[in-house]
Design a protein around this nucleic acid. Structure first.
Lengths: 221, 221
DNA sequence: ATGTCAAATAATATCGATATTTTTGGAGAG
DNA sequence: CTCTCCAAAAATATCGATATTATTTGACAT
């Protein structure tokens, strides 16, 4: 057993550090869409060498958060109404499929995890917006995570992130439309626990469409 | 103007070179599934520095052809029956959607491109297997490429490549089941040109399922 | 024999420096 | 005034070397 280091919590590699920081900055809009991502700038910002920065940027292209221009470096992925509409459409399609597959394999353990993730989300609601964000994603991923379809889950996770990027850009922060979000989550969970796939899927997709149309309307302004 | 180099056709960056070579080697099985991808080895093989190799490997994780293990380097993505079944399922779902969206926007220009890509594919059939592979992908991508849904196209392209990887692994080469592939392609094209989305989609999915089930059967052996 | 630990080895991850390429800025011709 | 072209500047891409981390090997005790 090895204490490793006096400074606590430094377990991760420089590349991973860069990856996570850049990811969050792009998702929240700190690095705005289309922005040129210059290595030297990021090197300073992240206090790191050029190699980890480049590698992190390469990894972020997987998530469609960064674009690579052949010999002209990287830039934050652009946004557009059409892009958002495609994300929304794909989410509705893929999450429907994933949720049904997940519900086709219900067991007590999964139900426990779902209830717990929902509880954690509601508890985080008032305290820390950042913690709520994390818990919210966990809830949605748990919902579709019982399908044992790793690629489908990966796609859904990607699309989830791309979607909340638009939310941050639209709202300049994590605050919600503040409508009946909590009730909608509750309804989805209840239907899932009742093993009513049709109802759960219907509610889930309505949940997405409703927030989606709100953003689309905002983008017309 | 600068001659740059006596060896002709060297327009591309080292990273792109590595990316494309590694990609082809993984797709064709020259780098078998699960194989540890050591930087030093690849550096030798590709006659390149470590940086382009690492960057190429990072980019290949986007395509789900390479896995990154936290501080233990890279390896070629493993394969499994479950993985193939998921790919097949996702393809059927996504290509159905893409084909219908593509057909919803038919125009003369797209019909021309489709006919041409089909012609190039049939012409390449007997000559060069490598050229046929490329033409075959172009045909399928043209089919779904009129939808103006870039993310969906990207997913379909990814899944196409993952699928032909299994074909190479199963057949140890690009040779087909040699059944009525050509007739199937013709049928799909005809239905598409007749703007019959339901028929085109049905034929396309049957086309995928048929070859898919052939591979699945082989994997049981 | 068998399991454990530490040194030796091998591989990855990272840095700093350099070569290459793109972009910028401005002088001169039409 | 506008366009073209070339030199200067900036940025990217790449290399070679080093620091870190994982893996193997073999001695030692049980």
């Amino acid at each position: 057993m090895n204490v490793m280091q006096s400074s606590p919590g430094k377990e991760t590699s420089a590349t991973r550090e860069c990856y996570q920081t850049l990811r969050k900055m792009i998702l929240t809009g700190a690095l705005p869409p289309g922005k040129k991502l210059k290595i030297e700038e990021l090197r300073n910002l992240l206090q790191s060498g050029a190699s980890p920065v480049r590698e992190a940027l390469s990894l972020l292209t997987s998530d469609m958060l960064v674009e690579r221009l052949d010999q002209r470096g990287f830039r934050a992925a652009p946004v557009s109404k059409a892009n958002f509409e495609e994300i929304l459409m794909l989410r509705c399609d893929l999450e429907d499929k994933a949720l049904r597959a997940s519900l086709a394999r219900v067991d007590a353990d999964w139900e426990d995890r779902l209830v717990l993730s929902h509880h954690h989300m509601t508890r985080a609601q008032r305290s820390d917006p950042d913690a709520f964000e994390a818990a919210h994603k966990t809830f949605h991923m748990t919902l579709i995570g019982n399908a044992n379809l790793p690629m489908l889950e990966r796609y859904c996770g990607q699309l989830y992130d791309l979607n909340i990027r638009y939310r941050y850009l639209a709202a300049d922060g994590p605050r919600y439309g503040e409508r009946s979000i909590a009730a909608e989550h509750e309804g989805i969970m209840t239907a899932a626990l009742a093993h009513d796939a049709a109802m759960a899927s219907k509610l889930l997709i309505e949940h997405y469409r409703r927030t989606g149309e709100y953003f689309i309307a905002q983008m017309d302004v």
